[in-house]
Amino acid sequence: MILQQLKGEFEQEVNSTRKLLQAVPEKDIDYKPSDISWTMGELAQHIATIYYWYVGTLTEDIYDMAADHVKRGEPNDIKATLALFESNVEKARAALNALTEQKLLDNWTMKVGEKVVLGPMPRGIVSRGFLFNHIYHHRGELIVYLRATGNKVPGMYGPTYEETVPVST
């Protein structure tokens, strides 16, 4: 039951994430709101990369980030980031489709080398927090970047302000 809901949410939110990443303009790819922030391109690439983490999170009991290497390409190339996103979504979808209700209850741990950084905790909780909610958090940041640079934000849960206000001529 929970697994079917996760799969449905995944598919709906993949479409929203795709729309948001497609809204990132090349002209503002290097924008960052502060010295300690990522650029818009780095943030978009991070969002695309989270989908890669679904595989290790959903298929391994102990996921070692230090042993896992994803090829990301250049963060200032939004077309490469979109391709990374699509590739990672396919991998994430396959991992999600192979998951069972029982596996959601199994403990999962994230390590970086020998250091435990998350867990152990049930995979279902990790799926919500580390995967789904993590993406939503960074999508919110990306929306702020788009608005701060005067770009349109696509509607993900209905029309956005920009889509409802008549354009002056």
Rank of each mutant, 00 (worst) to 15 (best):
M1H: 02
I2C: 04
L3I: 08
Q5D: 14
L6T: 09
L6D: 10
K7C: 06
F10Y: 09
F10N: 14
E11V: 09
Q12P: 11
Q12S: 13
E13V: 04
V14C: 13
N15V: 09
N15M: 08
S16L: 05
L20N: 01
L21Q: 02
A23N: 01
V24E: 03
V24K: 00
V24G: 00
E26C: 02
D28L: 01
I29Q: 03
Y31P: 14
K32S: 10
P33I: 00
S34T: 12
D35Q: 08
S37K: 00
W38R: 06
W38L: 13
T39E: 06
M40S: 08
M40E: 02
M40V: 09
E42W: 01
E42C: 08
H46A: 06
A48Y: 15
T49E: 14
Y52V: 03
W53F: 13
G56T: 02
E60M: 11
E60S: 05
D61T: 03
Y63T: 08
M65E: 15
A66W: 07
A66N: 07
A67K: 05
D68P: 00
V70E: 15
K71N: 15
G73L: 04
D77R: 04
D77A: 06
I78G: 04
K79T: 12
K79I: 11
T81Y: 03
T81I: 14
T81E: 09
L84T: 01
F85D: 02
E86H: 12
S87M: 10
N88M: 11
V89Q: 10
K91H: 11
K91F: 10
A92P: 01
R93P: 01
A94C: 01
A94H: 09
A94Y: 02
L96C: 06
L96Y: 00
N97H: 11
N97S: 15
A98T: 05
E101P: 00
Q102T: 13
L104P: 00
L104G: 04
N107Y: 03
W108A: 13
T109I: 00
K111A: 07
K111M: 12
E114T: 13
V116L: 08
V117G: 03
V117D: 06
L118S: 05
P120E: 01
M121L: 12
G124M: 11
V126Y: 10
S127Q: 00
G129I: 10
F130N: 04
F130G: 02
F132T: 12
N133S: 09
H134V: 13
I135G: 10
H137L: 12
H138I: 12
R139N: 09
L142V: 11
Y145D: 07
L146Y: 02
A148C: 06
A148R: 07
V153P: 00
P154N: 06
Y157M: 13
G158S: 03
Y161H: 11
Y161G: 03
T164S: 09
S168M: 08
